[in-house]
């Protein structure tokens, strides 16, 4: 069994969170509150020392005064907390959205639309390619709402929904795998690092 106080606290909090599976209880509430509080404090301190200090204060100290613009925009974000001048925060938000859109728009379109369309235009020489093309076309038809889904269009939309359901099933399967993996990690921590029963 571990003699490390940190491991004991982590084990206590892990069991506290898992206790919710039985039912809501004070043990869980305490663990949840500690998690939220510690996370907020951690991020606050981390951002000051790893983002604001090196990227803003460090550059201002070097005499690069134009970084002050970023600092001012950052402060303007916080104006949302003061209703009277809350409208000023929109300038900072507008700057962020504009920069983000300008930076990403073309690249996003090229990487996630054009390349994917090109990837879909495959020769119909294998079952996989046929399935992919049928799935894409019928899936898109399902989301075509300018005409009533009946007749040929309705049939294609029905095929499309089957493809969509299969993809949801695959996503669900992967989600289950992810959650079980995290559970295994926690169980391994409890039985190995804390109780020392596993090596």
């Amino acid at each position: 069994m571990s003699t490390d106080i940190g491991v004991w606290i982590a084990a206590f909090l892990t069991l506290g969170i898992l206790s919710f599976l039985y039912k809501d209880n004070p043990f869980y509430k305490v663990s949840e509150s500690i998690f939220i509080g510690v996370s907020a404090a951690y991020w606050f301190v981390y951002m000051i020392y790893n983002v604001i200090e090196p990227n803003l204060l460090g550059n201002l100290q070097k005499g690069e005064w134009w970084y002050a613009v970023a600092g001012i925009l950052g402060v303007m974000m916080l104006f949302r907390l003061i209703p009277k001048i809350g409208w000023l925060s929109r300038w900072a938000v507008a700057f962020m959205i504009g920069t983000g859109a300008g930076l990403n728009f073309i690249v996003y379109l090229q990487s996630n639309v054009m390349k994917q369309i090109r990837g879909t235009l495959a020769p119909l020489n294998s079952i996989g390619n046929i399935m992919m093309i049928v799935g894409v076309i019928t899936g898109l038809i399902y989301f075509f709402f300018s005409a009533e889904h009946k007749g040929l269009l309705g049939g294609a939309a029905k095929v499309g929904i089957w493809f969509i359901m299969v993809s949801f099933g695959a996503s669900f399967g992967y989600t289950v795998m992810a959650r079980i993996s995290l559970l295994i990690g926690r169980m391994h921590f409890l039985f190995s690092d804390w109780l020392g029963l596993l090596h």
């Binding site: 990487s111 390349k115 994917q116 090109r118 990837g119 993809s167 996503s171 992967y174 992810a178 993996s181």
Partner: peptide, 16 residues
């Protein structure tokens, strides 16, 4: 993570 995998599979087919 397994949760993200279905979103990234299309990049494999396009050889990205």
């Amino acid at each position: 993570t397994a949760v993200s995998a279905p979103m990234l599979y299309p990049y494999l087919q396009t050889k990205q």
